[in-house]
């Protein structure tokens, strides 16, 4: 590779097998070091696109539930995503309990999805597990779909009164976030 010197004669005669090898080794090492440096440089450039510290810092949202009548639901905002808080009627609870688990795509009972003694408070994320649209059914007068829970208009996923997926392309039930009742009327989510 070093015979590119025009009319200047490289003294190949002086350089034995070892010399050639040593030269190649240093060149390969230098190029490899440059390559390694280049790859390491990519790491911060990739990492800077990941969520920043302020986004990762888990925030909490408090929701006042005292004004939600049975059968009604409200939407709140939790970590920049919609949150559904629904006060189920006894009829809706019975409907949810009546479904055999074997019929469900993502088998879970209503009791598993609510807090003990507060089965009427169904608190879920308002994010369809298909592609992330916000399903209808929490706002007043919105279409609750064929199973009386939520209905996602984007691609037709229907959720039942326990917000479990029953029909359509969504693979999972609406996610239940971490939350606790700080009093009978206030829920702290997150």
């Amino acid at each position: 590779m070093a015979d590119t010197t025009g009319t200047v004669q490289p003294e190949t005669a002086d350089i034995g097998e070892d010399g050639v090898r040593r030269r190649d080794f240093i060149n390969v090492a230098a190029v490899a070091a440059a390559g390694t440096g280049g790859v390491i440089t990519l790491l911060p450039l990739i990492s800077q696109m990941a969520p920043s510290a302020d986004v990762l810092a888990a925030s909490t949202t408090e929701v006042d539930i005292s004004k939600i009548e049975p059968g009604q639901a409200i939407k709140a905002l939790f970590r920049r995503q919609p949150l559904f808080v629904r006060n189920l009627t006894p009829k809706e609870i019975a409907e949810a309990d009546a479904v055999p688990l074997s019929e469900l795509r993502d088998p879970q009972t209503l009791e598993e999805r609510t807090k003990p003694g507060k089965t009427n408070w169904l608190i879920t994320m308002g994010v369809c597990t298909h592609l992330g649209c916000t399903p209808l059914g929490a706002g007043p007068g919105e279409d609750r779909g064929p199973y009386g829970g939520y209905f996602c208009p984007c691609h037709g996923s229907a959720y039942d009164t326990a917000a479990r997926i029953r029909k359509g392309p969504a693979p999972k039930n609406l996610e239940v976030p971490e939350y606790e009742f700080t009093s009978d009327t206030v829920v702290k989510v997150g």
């Binding site: 240093i26 230098a30 190029v31 070091a33 440059a34 440096g37």
Partner: peptide, 8 residues
């Protein structure tokens, strides 16, 4: 890397 580059 710079020492290597110098040798190269």
């Amino acid at each position: 890397a710079t020492i290597l580059a110098y040798l190269a």
